[in-house]
Computed example of a mutant assay.
Amino acid sequence: MAADAVPAPVRAAAAGPVVQTTDVDLFYRVYDAAGGHPTAEQLQRDYLDQGSDGLQVLARERNVTGQRIADALAKNPSLYTGAKRCLSALPPARERLEAALRELARLYPEARFPPVTVAIGRGKPVAIGASDTGIQVGLEALCAIDWLNPDVEDRIVYVLAHEYAHVQQVHADAISDKPSPTVLEISLIEGIAEFVAELTAGKVAYSRNAAAAAGRELEIETRFAADIDKNDLSDWAYNTTPDAPGDLGYWVGYRIAKAYYRNAPDKRQALRDIMEMEDPKAFLEKSGWYPGIEFD
Rank of each mutant, 00 (worst) to 15 (best):
T65Q: 14
E41D: 07
E41P: 02
E61D: 12
G36C: 12
Q44E: 12
R45N: 10
L55P: 00
T65H: 14
Q67E: 09
G35Q: 05
V57F: 03
A40E: 09
Q67M: 02
Q56T: 14
A34S: 15
Q67F: 00
G36N: 11
E41H: 04
K75I: 00
N63V: 15
N63D: 11
K75R: 01
L48R: 00
Q42T: 05
D53H: 14
D46S: 10
T39F: 09
T65P: 09
A59W: 01
T65D: 14
R68V: 10
L73A: 13
G35H: 04
V64G: 11
P38T: 14
R60M: 09
A40I: 00
H37P: 06
P38L: 05
R62Q: 14
K75E: 00
L55G: 03
D49N: 09
K75N: 01
L48V: 15
G51H: 06
Q56D: 12
I69S: 06
G54P: 02
A33I: 06
S52V: 01
H37C: 09
A70K: 04
L43K: 02
L58F: 15
Y47Q: 08
D71E: 07
R62A: 08
L73R: 06
Q67H: 03
Q50R: 12
S52D: 04
Y31P: 00
A74M: 05
Y31H: 15
N63Q: 11
Q50F: 01
A34D: 15
Q44F: 15
A40C: 04
L55M: 15
G36L: 13
T65F: 13
D46N: 08
R45T: 11
R45W: 04
Y31T: 03
D46G: 03
A72G: 15
E41Q: 05
Y47R: 07
Q56P: 05
D53S: 14
R68M: 13
